[in-house]
């Protein structure tokens, strides 16, 4: 006999529950954590490279890098001074999920750190769907990507706590309408903390470092 069973279960429930467990582990150890998302080439790893030396003597930092393959990013993070740099190879998956982060947390002695920086797989769609359990999500946009990205990826721009606009040193060379970009961001996320900066020249990095340090030291969750 055929019968219908009503369920109404959120498809990402299992992931969301694990994300909560990750969050509880991080909080029990007093670790503040951020999830950095961006399209490939926007400058996630460059941002981490510029950030780590500026946090030296202030915060003990661990990084987790997600990539489809290679350990290039965690090598760069380690070289820039990360206390520990864990690489996750997703083997084809376009995003990190809570299970993968749990595996990375297992490899870290969390009591030895104040800040965990998670670098997600380069992609503007999928990572927005999969919670990891981190406290804040940081989106790295960049000038060469174009000014229309908030309009094209509303789900991603809407859900972030901080927005880095990287590569502002290229503004003179690229037809990027900052007004149009900002209008798109404001429509979706009027209260986002925005940091226009350049990882090459260092311009604008101080404001970002202040924001991160403030949040990590006072656990502004």
């Amino acid at each position: 006999m055929t019968q219908r069973i009503p369920i109404v279960e959120n498809i990402l429930n299992a992931n969301d529950r694990l994300a909560e467990e990750n969050r509880a582990r991080l909080e029990a150890a007093g670790v503040f954590s951020i999830n950095i998302i961006a399209s490939p080439g926007a400058g996630k790893t460059s941002l981490i490279e510029q950030t780590l030396p500026r946090l030296k003597d202030k915060l003990r930092v661990a990084t987790v890098d997600g990539d489809i393959a290679t350990s290039l990013d965690s090598d760069r993070a380690a070289a820039a001074g990360a206390g520990a740099a864990i690489q996750i190879n997703t083997g084809g998956d376009c995003h990190l999920d809570a299970v993968m982060l749990r595996g990375a947390l297992d490899q870290l002695d969390l009591t030895q750190f104040d800040l965990l920086i998670v670098e997600n797989v380069g992609n503007l769609i999928c990572p927005a769907n999969f919670k990891l359990g981190t406290h804040k999500t940081v989106l790295v946009a960049s000038i060469p990507e174009g000014d229309d990205k908030p309009y094209k990826y509303p789900g991603t721009y809407r859900g972030v706590d901080a927005l880095i606009v990287n590569k502002i040193d290229l503004l003179p060379y690229i037809p990027f309408k900052m007004d149009y970009f900002q209008r798109g961001v404001r429509a979706l996320n009027p209260n986002v903390a925005a940091f226009p900066l350049s990882c090459v020249t260092g311009e604008g990095l101080d404001a970002w470092i202040n924001w991160l340090t403030q949040h990590a030291t006072h656990n502004m969750i």
Partner: peptide, 17 residues
């Protein structure tokens, strides 16, 4: 700006037969 989403984020299994 900053509108609330009332519908469109659904992602769930409603029922199985």
């Amino acid at each position: 700006v900053g509108a609330k989403i009332i519908a469109g984020e659904e992602l769930f299994v409603e029922a199985i037969d």
